[in-house]
């Protein structure tokens, strides 16, 4: 009983902290290269959760476009973007966070969608319904999902 109460209190505290520290998409600060130095949540990314976001068609679906040798157990890697092998060695965390959040800052012509942006679109829709968006858009990934993906990408050092 006591333990449950403590857990509940812990969750409540975590949720409050999380909420307070999340940087909203429109408030993200980048440098001239699009790097985002500050964590979007203040909570360290979870690489295992990031791996799931990478491969899940309903989440990031990163391998729809990118080949990743470390994920070769997952079927059907795309050929549209560059291989992500070694990205953790080529880029630092701030650069990776910036590319995942809004790749067009670093690469203006990139086909890559911006996973943490909610404004500046032409005819944004209501998810995949084909109808107009109703109300403010949600980013494609949550702030913590971006942090998780960045944590996973940092493990790709070879």
């Amino acid at each position: 009983m006591t333990r449950h109460l403590m857990l509940a209190a812990g969750f409540a505290l975590a949720a409050t902290t999380l909420h307070a520290d999340v940087i909203l998409p429109d408030d993200v600060v980048t440098n001239e290269y699009g790097d985002i130095a500050q964590s979007l949540t203040g909570v360290p990314g979870d690489a295992a959760a990031g791996r799931d976001v990478m491969v899940n068609r309903g989440l990031g679906n990163c391998i729809a476009c990118h080949q990743v040798t470390a994920l070769e157990d997952e079927q059907f890697h795309g050929e549209v973007g560059p291989s992500l092998d070694g990205v953790g060695a080529r880029w630092d965390e701030a650069a990776l966070r910036g590319i995942v959040a809004n790749a067009k800052m670093a690469f203006p012509d990139s086909i890559m969608p911006s996973f943490y942006r909610v404004s500046g679109f032409t005819r944004p829709g209501n998810a995949f319904t084909g109808r107009a968006a109703e109300g403010p858009l949600e980013p494609l990934l949550t702030a913590q999902q971006v942090e998780d993906v960045v944590a996973y990408l940092m493990t790709l050092t070879e």
Partner: peptide
């Protein structure tokens, strides 16, 4: 749950 699949899962 939000559906964020890139190309329609």
């Amino acid at each position: 749950m939000r559906k964020t699949s890139l190309f329609g899962g």
